[in-house]
Simulated scan of single mutants.
Amino acid sequence: MTAQTNLSATRTTGGRPGGDVSVRTGAGKLVADTWAVFTREILLVLRDPFTLIFSLLQPLIFLGLFGPLLTGAVGGFGGGTPGGGGSTADTLQWFVPGVIVMISLFGTSMSGSNLLYEMMTGSYERVLATPLDRSAILVGRALKEFAPLVVQGLLIAVVCVPFGFTLYPLHLLVGLLLLGLFGVGVGALSISLALAAKNREWLFWGVQQSLLFPLLILSGMMLPLEAGPAWMQTAAMFNPLTYIVDAERALLAGSLVDTDVLWGFAAAALTCAVGLWVGIRRTRRTT
Rank of each mutant, 00 (worst) to 15 (best):
L60F: 12
M120T: 09
V158E: 02
G112P: 08
K198H: 15
G264V: 03
A142K: 07
Q4Y: 10
L70E: 12
T88V: 14
L143M: 11
F182V: 07
D258F: 06
T121W: 01
G14K: 00
V158I: 15
D20Y: 06
T12R: 08
F238K: 04
A269I: 14
I217M: 10
L43W: 08
F50W: 15
S55V: 02
T166F: 02
L52V: 08
W263L: 12
R141K: 15
V127I: 15
L195W: 01
A247T: 13
L46D: 07
R11H: 13
G254A: 00
T130D: 10
V45R: 13
G180V: 02
W231I: 12
F146C: 14
A197K: 00
T121I: 15
M232P: 04
L43S: 05
L52R: 09
I103V: 04
F95R: 04
D260Q: 14
M110C: 10
G85R: 14
P224H: 02
F163M: 13
F95H: 01
V150F: 13
F77S: 10
D90Q: 09
L116P: 10
N199R: 15
L69Q: 12
S87F: 03
D258V: 05
D33C: 08
R285A: 15
T13Q: 01
P148Y: 14
T130L: 13
L132T: 10
D258K: 01
M232V: 11
L223G: 06
A136S: 04
W35M: 13
I191P: 03
E145R: 09
E248Y: 08
W277A: 13
I280N: 00
F95D: 01
A73V: 01
V96Y: 05
I244A: 09
V127M: 09
F77I: 12
Y117T: 11
V278S: 06
R249D: 01
F213G: 06
L69H: 03
R11P: 02
N114M: 13
V96A: 02
F165W: 03
L176C: 03
G19R: 00
S87K: 07
V174N: 06
A188G: 07
A136I: 08
F146Q: 07
T287K: 15
I100W: 00
G140Q: 02
S135L: 00
A157M: 00
L143C: 12
M110V: 03
G76P: 11
P17F: 02
T91M: 11
S22Y: 15
R141F: 10
R11W: 11
L262W: 08
S111Y: 07
H171M: 00
S87C: 06
T81R: 09
F163T: 10
L65E: 05
T130W: 04
A129H: 08
L56A: 09
A89W: 06
P49G: 05
P240R: 11
Q4S: 12
R47L: 00
G122A: 07
V151S: 12
L256S: 05
L57Q: 03
D20H: 13
R284D: 07
L276S: 04
L132A: 14
L143H: 04
P49I: 01
L276G: 04
W263Q: 07
W263K: 09
G72S: 05
L223R: 09
A36T: 12
A142V: 15
G228E: 10
S111D: 09
T287R: 14
L43D: 09
S109K: 03
T10A: 07
A157V: 06
W231Y: 13
V174R: 04
F62A: 07
L252A: 04
